[in-house]
């Protein structure tokens, strides 16, 4: 793949998936605590989202950051707009803004769920599309 193709792939992923998470590892097996916490927030909301592991090719990260102007991973996009990384997503999850943004129900005890650093594994609640397949 050329860099241009990678960039187009990323642009398409953001355009086609209303809730699109770029992370290190996968929601089932996050490879970084920040990515794990961000995925855990989405999992707790039970919202449908697509996730892309940026680790297989470092150009994914380079092109993504070039596109978004955001230097770190994870990056969450909702309706084509960058929402933020782990800090912002966690804050918005705890305040209920994230639930509102993605059109989900705010779970009870939201702070407890967000404080977990690991994504729930194998609970079957989270339909996941991985567009790299």
């Amino acid at each position: 793949m050329t860099n241009t193709e990678i960039r187009e792939f990323i642009e398409n992923a953001i355009a086609e998936n209303p809730v699109m998470l770029f992370m290190k590892g996968t929601p089932e097996q996050p490879a970084c605590g920040f990515s794990a916490r961000t995925a855990a927030c989405l999992n707790a909301l039970g919202t449908r989202y697509a996730a892309l592991d940026i680790l297989p090719d470092q150009r994914i990260r380079e092109e993504l950051s070039g596109l978004s102007g955001w230097p770190t991973i994870p990056q969450l996009f909702v309706d084509g707009e960058l929402v933020g990384g782990c800090d912002i997503v966690t804050e918005m999850y705890e305040s209920g803004e994230l639930a509102e943004l993605v059109g989900a129900e705010q779970p009870e005890q939201a702070e407890d769920a967000a404080a977990r650093s690991e994504a729930p594994v194998g609970n079957g609640k989270v339909p996941l599309e991985n567009r790299l397949d």
Partner: peptide, 9 residues
Amino acid sequence: RIQQHKLVY
């Protein structure tokens, strides 16, 4: 928030 964090980054 995005703009605030970007200023720091």
